[in-house]
Design a protein around this nucleic acid. Structure first.
Length: 259
DNA sequence: GCCAACGTTGGC
DNA sequence: GCCAACGTTGGC
């Protein structure tokens, strides 16, 4: 089964160390241990479910343009996250005993970038469409593909940093990421172009406003979130079946460390 | 930087 | 074991 893993591409300092891990960093590194995850549900997935050869969608979160930026692959299955024992590490967990690891990780290998990284905005847009509608621009993913994307946990389990992805959703994301053509469907965020046009400048425009297209794509109408009754209310139950002592507090965010 | 959503903690 | 208070994630 394919998976999605989140990393933060922007610098953020935790306990004096930068925890950024962007697609650039990942590509340079090639293979990386996915350390620093301090959430039991995500940990459990890495410890028990991710298998060698499984594909991974590499996702940028907590940044300007959240989205899927690359494909990766599991190259080493679950093993103890040694950073939990390192007092100098941003995600040091003093509660973890040396002989009884609480946190696990896998190794993932960078495979390739996506030419048109599907953005969260696109994914949410697809999730908002009624299941019977599919814009022409992306007819190539099919309605099933579109609907599968709409059901991704990314949409309703926003905070889970390692999550399963349906094969059909994975396939559709890869198609969108390699074929593109969907850019006009969602708003492109622009830095902050102050398209400063004098409030009522006397300068006559040569070109009718309608003819220009500088302001980036227009936001398209976002229909209601289709809350399908089948939404997995997969509430992250406080995993009491934890293989670990009581409170594994000190829950840290599940981000990667910069190498 | 704000803040909604959601996860965790701890009192009872 | 409930639930209010608190902390974190992460989009915007």
């Amino acid at each position: 089964m394919p998976w999605l893993m989140k990393a933060e591409p922007d610098s953020r300092v935790v306990k004096g160390k930068d925890v950024k891990f962007s697609v650039d960093d990942f590509e340079k590194l090639g293979v990386s241990p996915w350390d620093g995850v301090r959430n039991h549900e995500a940990k459990k997935i890495m410890k028990e479910r991710m298998k060698i050869g499984d594909k991974v969608l590499f996702y940028h979160s907590n940044c300007k343009v959240p989205g899927v930026f690359a494909i990766a692959e599991v190259v080493k299955e679950g093993y103890p996250d040694y950073t939990a024992w390192d007092p100098d590490h941003p995600y040091y967990d003093p509660k973890t005993k040396k002989d009884q690891p609480t946190w696990f990780m896998v190794n993932v290998k960078f495979i390739q970038r996506l030419d048109y990284p599907p953005t969260l905005s696109l994914i949410k847009y697809l999730a908002s469409l009624s299941t019977s509608i599919l814009p022409d621009e992306i007819s190539y993913i099919g309605k099933d593909g579109s609907n599968a994307i709409g059901n991704m946990q990314l949409v309703n389990r926003g905070r889970l940093s390692v999550q399963p992805v349906e094969q059909s959703a994975y396939d559709a994301i890869i198609l969108l990421g390699t074929q593109g053509g969907w850019e006009s469907l969602v708003q492109i965020k622009k830095p902050k172009s102050k398209s400063k046009v004098e409030p009522n400048s006397t300068a006559k425009r040569e070109i009718p406003p309608a003819a220009e297209e500088d302001e980036g794509e227009k936001a398209i109408e976002r229909p209601q979130l289709k809350s399908k009754g089948t939404v997995k209310k997969d509430r992250a139950s406080p995993n009491k079946t934890e293989d670990v002592p009581s409170e594994a507090r000190g829950e840290r965010r599940s981000k990667r460390l910069k190498k």
